[in-house]
């Protein structure tokens, strides 16, 4: 079983005095796995440790049976798309893939064909001679995925890949990832909850360095059932309502406002509704007491 999974046991990471990752215990299996959490929760730290660009302070990590400290062997089987993906700006897309391909330990067999194949997978064949600095955000991310896959890794680690992308790009990217996940373990970290809902079966939530949820997306949503309400109110009442409830969404239409909020106690004059993953996420944080009032302050 361990030969096909990533096993993380009691993983700790300290930055000086700051305890960035607190006793993480996690098993990740084949398919798309979503790591959810706020900015600063520790997602990137965890990603970096798995990608071997950061040293852990304590704990044990085994990737497909290989201990993390065998850095070179791990790098042969993992592909990494960092959050701040960038490359020599004047390099062309094709040259970048060739260069990174060699560095990734890509096989010499069918070297050129494999690069061409990847270019078409990520839909960048037409841009093969374009310089990296001229690429749009979405294209860069696609290039990022391509370079992570060059050596056909069994593990793909993708850190916040959709941040800053427009909706169309984001969807395209997610689909790409799902395609790729069929034969691999793909770990996707994000603070955009919608990404998880669309692509992942299992997810974990990191909050202030701690793993506070580890299970299926389905269960996360189930957990919030019965706790999400909608309410129709007057626009002028919004300020009051904000103080009263933990609002996850406001829609205004003329003088009316439709607010969506979570509550662990029954609210008589509001309507129960089916939670979406955002509600579920917020509710889970709220339950765990790590909730900060999201309603926002005075306008």
């Amino acid at each position: 079983m361990t030969e096909n999974t990533i096993e993380i046991k009691n993983l700790n990471k300290f930055y000086g005095k700051k305890h960035a990752l607190k006793n993480i215990n996690l098993t990740i299996e084949k398919g798309m796995f979503g790591l959810l959490g706020r900015n600063g929760a520790g997602k990137t730290t965890l990603m970096r440790i798995l990608a071997t660009t950061l040293q852990k302070s304590d704990g044990e990590v085994k990737i497909l049976g290989t201990d993390l400290k065998n850095t070179r062997n791990i790098r042969k089987i993992t592909g990494y798309l960092p959050q701040e993906f960038s490359m020599y700006p004047s390099m062309s897309v094709y040259d970048a893939l060739e260069y990174l391909g060699i560095l990734s330990g890509m096989s010499g067999k069918n070297f050129r064909e494999n690069i061409d194949k990847l270019l078409s997978t990520v839909n960048l064949q037409e841009k093969r001679n374009v310089k990296i600095r001229s690429l749009s955000g979405g294209m860069k991310r696609r290039l990022g995925i391509a370079q992570a896959l060059l050596h056909n890794p069994k593990i793909l680690i993708v850190d916040e890949p959709t941040a800053g992308l427009d909706p169309e790009e984001r969807i395209r990217f997610r689909n790409l990832l799902s395609e790729v996940a069929s034969e691999r373990i793909v770990i996707l970290s994000t603070h955009i909850v919608g990404d998880i809902e669309a692509t992942c079966e299992k997810t974990a939530i990191l909050n202030a360095g701690e793993l506070i949820y580890n299970g299926t997306v389905e269960n996360l949503i189930k957990n919030a059932e019965g706790n999400v309400y909608t309410l129709e109110a007057d626009r002028s009442e919004i300020i009051v309502l904000k103080k009263k409830y933990n609002i996850t969404g406001i829609q205004t239409s003329g003088n009316k406002a439709f607010i969506r909020f979570i509550s662990d106690t029954e609210v008589k004059n509001a309507k129960l509704c089916t939670p979406n993953i955002e509600d579920a996420y917020m509710f889970y944080l709220f339950e765990k007491g790590s909730f900060v009032n999201i309603s926002g302050g005075e306008i």
């Binding site: 993906f85 960038s86 490359m87 700006p89 004047s90 990296i132 600095r133 690429l135 860069k140």
Partner: peptide, 8 residues
Amino acid sequence: KKFRNKQI
């Protein structure tokens, strides 16, 4: 532009 190392 060709001399600048503008970051992406």
